[in-house]
Amino acid sequence: MMHSLELEVSRRPEVLERVLRVTRHRGFRVTNMQMREQGENTLLAITVEAERAIELLSNQLTKLVDVNLCVVKAQEAARQAAR
């Protein structure tokens, strides 16, 4: 199953490695990724594919010290629809 994530991470040289390492190790394959820098932060939009529930990844990414925000996009859409 495909999932889309949006992350706001600290602008540090190793931050991409951190995010991608956790993604791979927790069993998710990156199929698409975009990044851009914005002030002190870097914004990442990542599409991943896995059999596993996306929360197994988003919970681990949220835990990273350099990850300031991690949103699963489908969840966000559902939340907005509920408003």
Binding site: A53, E55, L56, N59, Q60, T62, K63
Partner: peptide
């Protein structure tokens, strides 16, 4: 205390 353990 680690939310990532819940439901893992």
């Amino acid at each position: 205390v680690d939310a990532a353990e819940l439901g893992k």
